[in-house]
Design a protein around this nucleic acid. Structure first.
Length: 269
DNA sequence: CTGGTCACCTGGAAGC
DNA sequence: TGCTTCCAGGTGACCA
């Protein structure tokens, strides 16, 4: 569920609530997530939360002598609740912080809770990640270089975390609509002009979603426990058969790399 | 190294 | 109403 904007909104919501607080305990109700929650995680009591960073869709909780690595997978969400709040069916993990608790809910269990004592960027899951789309390093020249020789469609290219991180299935379709580029276009054929449209389209799409508090899909719950993020209007995502908001042509749904892609056949060439 | 496919897991919606 | 099938925001593992 969560793409980069949801993870970033979660990070911004969590950090002021957790920074400076001391871990008083850990509860693991279901250790079998994407990977089994390692034993070190159960032994974190006494450490202080220094801050929370984000790399791609990973949240990195700085505990001084190491980092707790959190990933929300397809259906994960994090909330901060009062200590003692009764856990629900899919509430697998708690980080207890005195009078409050950071709780991970993840029905599909594709998420992860890991620990690393080494610099997190050297962790095997993070070491080979691509460029952050909201960074200055991600510009038209860089995108154009990256696409040279890439033998996949531009939609699949955008979703490949070894090239660009954080652009998931919703925002890949949305960004390509904004840039007026056909999602089936071969990456290697992306022109400099198209790269110059696509980079700001991606940045604007992600920033708009962050500003909106994350695109509100069903099971995303804000870190403060408030439900009901503003439902963003998508240009094309999940709008198969409905009229394009720009030209009224019916939005088309295709499958690329086993994932649904939505686009306007008239606006995107 | 690249690209294509599968796997992991649960729940909601649609179809019969 | 109840059963079956399909689909879903991610991404590592494996294969040719």
């Amino acid at each position: 569920m969560p793409e980069l904007p949801e993870v970033e909104v979660t990070r911004r919501g969590l950090e002021p609530q957790l920074a400076g607080r001391v871990i008083s305990g850990v509860a693991v109700r279901e250790a079998r997530l994407r990977w089994r929650i390692p034993r070190e995680v159960r032994l974190l009591a006494g450490r202080t939360v220094r801050g929370i960073a984000r790399r791609a869709k990973y949240l990195l909780v700085d505990l001084g002598d190491g980092h707790l690595i959190l990933h929300l997978g397809m259906s994960g969400s994090l909330r901060v609740l009062a200590a003692g709040s009764a856990p629900g069916k899919h509430d697998h993990f708690d980080l207890e912080l005195g009078d409050r608790v950071l709780r991970l809910r993840d029905p599909r269990r594709f998420g992860a809770v890991l620990w690393t004592a080494a610099p997190p960027q050297t962790h095997r899951l993070l070491a080979h990640l691509g460029v952050e789309p909201l960074s200055r390093a991600f510009n038209a020249r860089r995108l154009h270089e990256l696409t040279r020789g890439a033998n996949v469609s531009i939609k699949q290219f955008l979703m490949d975390g070894k090239r660009i991180v954080g652009v998931g299935n919703i925002y890949a379709s949305e960004s390509l609509f904004r840039a007026g580029i056909d999602p089936r276009k071969a990456s290697r054929k992306l022109s400099v002009e198209e790269a110059k449209r696509l980079v700001p389209a991606i940045k604007r799409t992600l920033l708009a979603a962050i500003r909106a508090g994350g695109s509100s899909l069903r099971d995303f719950v804000g870190s403060d426990g408030a439900s009901g993020y503003f439902q963003q209007r998508h240009w094309v995502y999940d709008r198969a058969g409905q009229p394009c908001r720009r030209c009224r042509a019916p939005i088309r749904r295709i499958v690329q790399g086993q994932r649904a892609t939505y686009y306007c056949p008239s606006c995107q060439k």
